[in-house]
Structure formats: C-alpha cells, structure tokens
Write a protein that binds this DNA or RNA. Structure first.
Length: 522
RNA sequence: GAGGGCGUAGCUCAGUUGGCAGAGCAACGGCCUUUUAAGCCGUGGGUCCUGGGUUCGAGUCCCAGCGCCCUCACCA
C-alpha cells in the first residue's frame, strides 16, 4: 500500500474516534453550486461581508425572503489551511464553489440534533473544526453555511456545520494539470471525470445533444422504439458482426450491426414514424473514428423521402450546434466548421467529375486511374477484382471526401452501392440516397427506402453473390416477407451519434466521447 | 496485420556522452484568521512497464514481450 493511501486509512480511524462517520448518509436539501452562484448574483454582498442571520439548521437551502443559509455538497478539489481559517474549494456537477471554515465561527455554532436514521450528521463545534482540518483532497463533503464574500470579493460559503459524506482513500491527480495520461483517462474514466472539468463537460454535452435530437424527433411525431440487439440474422449494413451463443436455445446469435431491418418491420406494422438510439457492434478495426460498439440514431418516416431526411438532419445537427454548443460555427482541430443551414446539396457524379476530373460514365478512364492509384498504394481497391461501383467509390473517397469540410449533402449515389434504396425514377443507375459529410467524415446516411419486395429480393441476392467471406449476410427471408405486406414509401436516416459528439465537442478521437472505450486488460 | 512514438514517485514532468534517480504538486511534521494552483521551515517517498543481453557500470545502448497513442491497412 502506498504511503498516501495508508495515511488516509489512518485518518478513517481518527475520524471514527471523533464520532464522525466517514461515509455519511442521506443529505437532503442540497443546492447546486450553480444555484448558489445564481442566487448570490441577486444579493448585494460586499467584499468582506458575511450574510446573516443563520437559518435553522436542517431546513432546505434557498435564498427566499432574505434567508441565506445554504446546504452544499461536493468533492474537495483544493484545501488551503491558514491556521485558524481554512478555505476549501468544492466541486459538484455544476462547477466549483469556495467554502470558508473559520475556527471561531464553527466553534460557536449550535449543535444540530440528529436527523432521521440514515441521514448524514452535521457537525458543529470542535468536531466540525477537526473535520475541516483533517479533510483530504478528493473527499466528498457537505456543509451548511452562510453566503459571503472574502476581502478579495470571492463568493464564499462560510460553513457553520460540516459533514463528511464519503472519505476518499486515494490521492486524486495533480490539482493543476489533472489526469493527463491518455491510457489512464480511458481505463479509469472516473478519475478523469472527477479531475478534468473539460472531460466532464464533453459527456454533459453528449447527453444534451442526444436530448436535443430526441426533442426534434418528438416534435415531429416520431416514436422511440427498441429493437433486438441480439439477432439470429444480421443485416442492414455490410460489416463483420460479433457472434455469441444462447445456451438455453442452443442458438448462434449476432450482435446487431444495424437496426434497419427491424425498424422497417415497424413501418410495415403501422408505426409510421419511428426512431432508435441503437447501440451497434462491428467486429472490425479500431481507429480514432471507429469503435467496436457505437451509437447510431436511426429513424424512418412513412410517406416521406430522402428530402425530408435532409431537413431532419439539418434540424438535429445544426440545431444541436446552436442550442447545445451555442453557435453554428464550431472549431474542430485547425478548422472552423460552419453548420448554418441550409447545407449545400451536390450530386455525387458532379463532385466526382469536379475533383477526379473524370466523368462518372467514363469507365475506362476510371479504371485506368484506379489502377494507377492502386499501384502507388494510394487506394486499397484493386480495380481488377472490383466492379465499377466499388472502384468509383474508392476514387470518390480519395479525391472528393477530403474537400467536404463544411456540412454538405452528397446526393444521388450509384445504385449498386445501395441495395436498400429506391432507384432514381429517370436515371436507373442512380439511387435516391444522400450522405451528409462534415470535416471529410460521413455523418449521416439517408435513403428513399426501397419498398418493392421483388426488387429487394433481387438486390439482396446480388449482394450475397457479391461478397465472399464472413461479411456475407444470410438472406433475411422474413424481412422480404414483411415487405410483401406493404411497407409505406419512406425516408430513412442514420446519424452517427459518437461522430456527431466528436464534431460538436471538438474531440479528435471517438474514445474521447465514449465513457469507457474498450481497452485490452492490463 | 505493418511502420513510428511513448511507458521514470500518487499526479504532471525533467533526466546531458552510459557514471550516486531529480523537480513541482500531493503526502508527513511545524507556523499562520481572508487564501485563490496560498505561503514559509523541515521530512519521507522509486519493480525507471516486464524479461533477457552488452558493459567495470544501464533510466539511458541492444533483443524479446506487454500496454497505450498516431499513421497505414481493414472498415457503408
């Protein structure tokens, strides 16, 4: 055991001998630091002043009718002991607040009668003073006190009563730099969260972004559903799945790679506007933009098409930028990205011609260029082994994607890339699909959904033939049968929530927006 | 899977040409009633990621392994 940990265990005993329970209990009536700060703004507290009189201990705190006693709680992040006066900076979820503990003040405070069983006991007098002296960085503490300001004007809660809510037995990271080691931040996220305010902010923003998207969808009449994560047949994307096994049924199961085929069954059943925040799993490489499990928002709107999906995409992403982050313009790395809607719509073929310098119909020239790039190892697709659409897609990634920095809808994809999409009515080689690109990254993917069961059967069969190895999906006969009961024409959309959170929080790695990213065991 | 980088005190980091393992914060003891990463005096704290090797001598050089990060590959 480290010396510091041993010291803290020794303090546990010392506290118990003083009659202080190191693990507290219920502590009702706590105001957040944010609430206290806001309340203080409406009070005219001058430097050096401490407000009074003290409210009856145990009453819920709030500034009402001039009453100024507050209960606060949080983690000790700074502890400055000046002899008979101690300043403690206490952090809660909403921010930091300075507490002041004056020996004279706590020792003259009246003792509090014990509350309910299970309620943390507020200490006054000598016990409170000794507790304040013994506090360690990282301890969770509660207090009741009076608002004031120090000589330098710092808002301070002057404690009359103190309680220890939970003793911290390990030293927290350095108070100024926090936890910097990337591996430690991922493996022990709790330490990262408690010491790095910026990290906590990222996850609070993530929650706000998801709430915002949910609100947009509820306003449009969408219903949130939950579909299976464990699937006997996987589909809806081209990716390698994780496999597992159900013992009682003695059955092989897959963790879903996409919720798509189940959400479409919902459409058939008359759930006309559905969405799901779907945790998906893909057994593939890990990178700053790929995690084995990730969250996809997927939604379907009956009687709509991909144009409706563009409007929703803008509403969610640009709206979250504006309402959660506070601006349509957000820095990401060296760049500033402008989310102001409406975003430009550009045809896939036009972008291809513009950046690759070849018409999409000029198959010979495309193959020649692909061969050249493959030889120079600039693309990974061997044109000799790939069909036209795959080669075009590889060139598109190489030439076009890096230019798509500000949000853009790329529309009308080559049909062979989109087996679940309706064909363009006047150009059968194209599909009614868009992808939303931001910062060269694919952020959203939407279709006018294919609802012709016969065509669907054909395209899925073709896809089965096309792929050889384990990425090959098994034909989902039940899905095609569902389409035969008539699925409404619909727009469908998928948005990568983790990537959206990366962009809006300025996080350059997906692991920085995942609380507990996968790590090999140590 | 390939290449590159990193791994030193609880944390943040130095460590020169291979020559006694360092600082700040944190901890411990002492002083201090208005601090702001408080300050001052004093003290303790190391599997230098692991295992081999070279050398009189390895944190440092070599080999192997483990973990993390980045690039590439993979990847709707």
């Amino acid at each position: 055991m480290s010396d510091q940990r041993a010291d803290r265990f020794a303090k546990l005993e010392k506290l118990r001998q003083l009659g202080i329970d190191p693990y507290g209990g219920r502590f009702p009536g706590v105001s957040t630091n944010q609430t206290i700060r806001t309340a203080a703004e409406t009070l005219d507290i001058s430097a050096g002043q401490i407000l009074g009189p003290v409210a009856a201990p145990g009453e819920p705190s709030a500034v009402v009718d001039g009453r100024v006693a507050h209960r606060a709680a949080g983690r000790v992040v700074l502890h400055r002991d000046i002899g008979s006066l101690i300043f403690i900076t206490v952090r809660d979820q909403t921010g930091d607040l300075q507490w002041g503990v004056s020996r004279k003040m706590v020792e003259s405070a009246l003792a509090v009668s014990a509350g309910d069983a299970g309620e943390a006991r507020l200490h006054a007098g000598e016990a409170a003073w000794k507790l304040a002296k013994l506090l360690d960085l990282g301890d969770l503490v509660g207090c009741e006190g009076r608002l004031g300001r120090t000589k330098t004007g710092e808002l301070t809660l002057w404690a009359t009563h103190l309680t220890l809510l939970s003793k911290c037995l390990r030293p927290p990271p350095e108070k100024f730099h926090g936890l910097q080691d990337v591996e430690a931040r991922y493996r022990r996220r709790y330490v990262d969260l408690l010491s790095n305010v910026e990290s906590r902010e990222v996850f609070l923003k993530r929650a706000a972004i998801i709430n915002y998207a949910r609100k947009v969808l509820h306003e449009r009449g969408f219903v949130e559903v939950d579909t299976p994560v464990l699937q006997p047949i996987y589909g809806g994307a081209a990716a390698r799945p994780f496999t597992t096994h159900h013992n009682a049924l003695d059955m092989k199961l897959y963790l879903r790679i996409s919720p798509e085929l189940y959400l479409k069954r919902c459409l058939v059943g008359g759930l006309e506007r559905v969405f799901e925040f779907a945790r998906c799993f893909r057994n593939e490489g890990i990178s700053p933009r790929h995690n084995p499990e990730f969250t996809m928002l997927e939604l379907y709107q009956a009687y709509g098409d991909y144009h409706d999906m563009m409007e929703i995409t803008e509403a969610i992403i640009a709206g979250a930028a504006r309402d959660v982050i506070g601006s349509y313009r957000i820095r990401f790395g060296e760049r500033e990205i402008d989310y102001t809607p409406p975003w430009p719509r550009r045809r896939y073929g036009d972008l291809f011609a513009e950046h690759a310098g070849i018409a999409m119909a000029d198959t010979a020239a495309i193959r020649a260029r692909a061969r050249e790039l493959y030889t120079r190892k600039q693309i990974s697709v061997d044109e000799a082994k790939a069909d036209d659409a795959v080669v075009i897609s590889a060139l598109f990634e190489h030439y076009v994607e890096p230019h798509l920095v500000n949000p853009m809808f790329v529309v009308d994809y080559p049909a062979p890339l989109c087996p679940l999409t309706k064909r363009h009515p006047s150009e059968p080689g194209l599909a009614l699909r868009f992808e939303a690109y931001v910062n060269g990254m694919e952020m959203g993917n939407a279709y006018s959904e294919l609802n012709d069961p016969v065509v669907q059967q054909e395209t899925l069969t073709a896809q089965l033939r096309g792929e050889g190895d384990e990425t090959m999906a098994v034909m989902d006969e039940d899905f095609v049968e569902a389409l035969e009961y008539a699925m409404p024409p619909a727009g469908g959309l998928g948005i990568g929530i983790d990537r959206l959170c990366m962009l809006l929080t300025g996080s350059e790695s997906i692991r920085d927006v995942l609380l507990f990213p996968l790590q090999r065991p140590r």
